[in-house]
Design a protein around this nucleic acid. Structure first.
Lengths: 230, 230
DNA sequence: ACAAAAGTGTTCACACTACACCCATGG
DNA sequence: CCATGGGTGTAGTGTGAACACTTTTGT
């Protein structure tokens, strides 16, 4: 099967590292763990794993995500491949980073303890092993771009959400405040949300209406020739 | 040196494939070659090579670029890693794609013959081996985005260029016509170009003034708080 | 003189920004 | 009744889009 031409060349360990984003306490967080093996055992690290023979890069990343979150169907996107010779002090490893957006409402906190993992506010990011800080930085840059171009922000929520929460998330991602009226005006003009009768009454006395993202309305929006832009 | 933990895992061939963009005849072109080895020998392919033990991914891509163009300091950027199990019918290969922008004025055409390479209009792209068509598609998407956000379009030119040529290039990248006056107005408002006294008189009788991109003016532009956007 | 490409301003529509007050409710 | 967060409209400014004619020069 494998061609002769392919045999005389170096082979490499390949890892998939995941920047797992979640939204909590009006701030964007990422899931970090204490690295379980040498070198740099015990230091903060992204979730990762080696790619094995019978899986694609995406499969490997999905496996990592499932192991640490027990969620399936997580939104995931490749960030970049990292291939400096000495990026991993334990040996030559080429790593492909993926970012993922998880619904924190569904997150099983017992998992966190099992893996010595912690949700960390992106504003208080510690020093991470190897080039993981760079990976997070690149992932954030990509996330900011993607959020502005595609309706992926809704993947942070478990189905329904309130407009104040959506705005808080948006502000957490971009790290700057935006005007409430302008934000809502823009969303209204897109007409891609369904307003529910239900209210969320935990974070305020008056309560904020829940909304859901409507795939159908979004399709109509696209069909009308417009492009999503937030 | 290499830790025990790293030893029990699969290793992979890793390739660097380059989408080399150039501008000619008012159209965007990419450099393709006839694949020299089985499988799919003789079919159209991107330029690529395997990564070796003592080089980073970027180094491998730079080597490929130098081999095929003899130019140094080519602008290059990573597109994505491709890791489907059966993407290469010759064996399991993980490939990292890079796009590059070359100055066609400096291109040595004898090289093309040596490698059985050809500049191909992106509008007439043939079927390529493996997933190379997808790589080109992804590279084009990224190029379009980057061109709109950073002044990399000037890397297509050897120092000086005319405004009509710049506009032609811009239209070739985005595949749609733009208004001449609006285009020039926008460039003028940015004030990042230096007008030369010299004219280019090959493509018109009247002649078009040459311009150069001014790094200093660009720095001032950024310092004024504005962001490049074309 | 004419063909072929270079160069140049104005108007209009729309989108983005800034901005302040009333509402509903629980304690 | 008051503190807390939810919800709403308007006016001004700036940016992008549409649009046509004059200039230069080689043949």
């Amino acid at each position: 099967m494998t061609n002769q031409y392919y045999l005389d060349t170096s082979k490499f360990l390949v890892a998939a590292d995941c920047i797992i984003f979640g939204f909590r306490d009006k701030e964007l967080h990422i899931l970090l763990t204490r690295r379980p093996v040498e070198p740099e055992a015990g230091e903060w690290s992204l979730m990762g794993g080696f790619v094995s023979e019978n899986e694609s890069l995406e499969d490997a990343a999905k496996k990592v995500l499932f192991d640490y979150t027990q969620q399936r169907g997580i939104y995931m996107e490749q960030v970049n491949a990292y291939g400096e010779i000495d990026r991993d002090s334990g040996g030559r490893v080429i790593s492909v980073a993926f970012y993922a957006l998880v619904r924190l409402e569904e997150f099983d906190t017992t998992l966190a303890q099992k893996f010595d993992a912690r949700w960390t506010n992106i504003k208080e990011l510690p020093q991470l092993v190897f080039d993981h800080n760079k990976m997070v930085h690149d992932a954030l840059t990509l996330l900011r771009f993607k959020v502005s171009m595609q309706p992926i922000i809704f993947k942070f929520f478990d189905e329904k959400f309130t407009l104040p929460a959506l705005q808080d998330l948006y502000e957490a991602i971009y790290q700057h405040p935006i005007d409430k009226r302008n934000f809502r005006k823009k969303l209204a003009s897109m007409n891609i949300l369904d307003k529910l009768d239900e209210k969320e009454t935990v974070s305020s006395k008056r309560g904020a209406f829940y909304y859901t993202f409507s795939e159908e309305k979004y399709m109509e929006y696209l069909a009308s020739g417009k492009y999503f832009s937030l």
